[in-house]
Design a protein around this nucleic acid. Structure first.
Lengths: 122, 122, 122, 122
DNA sequence: GTGGTCTAGACCACA
DNA sequence: GTGGTCTAGACCACG
């Protein structure tokens, strides 16, 4: 599991890290219980400030994706809360995306197909 | 069509305005060719600075959702570019949302149903 | 010779009129000495304020493309000043366009070909 | 690379800055990856408000000429989208310039020569 | 009347 | 330190 930063992106670095770890979990690249690199190790590896990695980890903790193991740093949760629903923010974002798709003339079927494909990927 | 601001959100005000207008167009609350409130009017109505509204309008203009008719202020475009595809950013966002849905235990079918529902709404 | 306004353009209406008349002269749609419609006639025809047409005519006069005939309104000049060079503004604009073309990877030959084609057209 | 403002011009300041930077990139005065002065530094240097510089930078960013690296301010893009074609606006402008050149009695060959010279310079 | 531009300040998120 | 956002004013071009 390697983290890939995009300097030209508007997305803050800590958010990029958080995003890639979430996708990594969903794709199975990161297994439940797996240990994440330490803040300092990851920061060194991708050449950024430790504070930034720390912020990403804190966010992931707060969202329930990882937990702190006192002895060995951060680990991926073994069980995720099965709320089976999207967050309020995600719903808003999804509506936003769908609005733009509709206005651009995209057919509902095509959009659904895309979603199904992504659901298989990630 | 009324604009609703969320002060607690970290989404910039001009972006919130832009978003709600895009959804408004997609939902049909704003018809093609319809005149938008003037910059000053909208600013006064929602109690913010007119430059902020202006910024939202310029963003919408640049994205091709509205145009400014010199005689009568801003209007919704009558024809939208039919790209029939999602922007790179939207794709990334969508994958992100789908990852989160999967981890939360949401079934693909349920996610698709949500999308279809939103596609009908907006 | 009909004038075609683009409401969605950023170019001021009076400038659009001026531009189309200049191109019209260059293309031969407007012959030297030919009478232009009166300000009021043209304004009525394209549904805009007379002031706007007047402004366009004034600009054209000032630039030496047309002249006022006291009896019959405005006419296209019969002889244009043959300075055989571009205005300072046009040179700056041309450099600007060429810069953008170069950065976009356009080859010099292709650009020249375009210019030759346009030179034939207008 | 110094920015030169023309107070008498009706071209907005932010646009003048944007234009000079684009030409600077094309001329090689600004190399890919090179860091631009910070918004505040440039604003102080040329004696204008920083929001105006910021606007210029945002425009350049949106057009894909520069990007803002969160760590070190704005930088020239290392790779430009190779569209290899002119924008609709540039085509219109170019036709306009050519019309004016023709009316002024400029020969096609001379115009082409000018273009080739500029293409070499910038 | 409209939107567009600009100023001089301020605050905030990010790194 | 950086850029991004926002405010409260002002002036101008356009129509």
């Amino acid at each position: 599991m390697i983290i890939c930063l995009d300097d030209t992106s508007d997305v803050p670095i800590y958010q990029q890290i958080r995003n890639q770890i979430v996708v990594g979990i969903s794709e199975g690249k990161l297994s439940p219980g797996e240990q994440l690199p330490t803040v300092r190790a990851l920061a060194g590896e991708i050449g950024i400030n430790s504070m930034t990695v720390s912020k990403a980890y804190q966010l992931l903790k707060q969202e329930g994706y990882i937990y702190s193991d006192r002895r060995s740093g951060a680990r991926v949760r073994t069980e995720f809360e099965q709320k089976e629903k999207l967050s309020k923010e995600s719903v808003a974002l999804l509506k936003q995306i769908i609005s733009e798709a509709k206005i651009s003339g995209m057919k509902k079927e095509d959009f659904i197909k895309k979603c199904e494909a992504y659901f298989g990927e990630v």
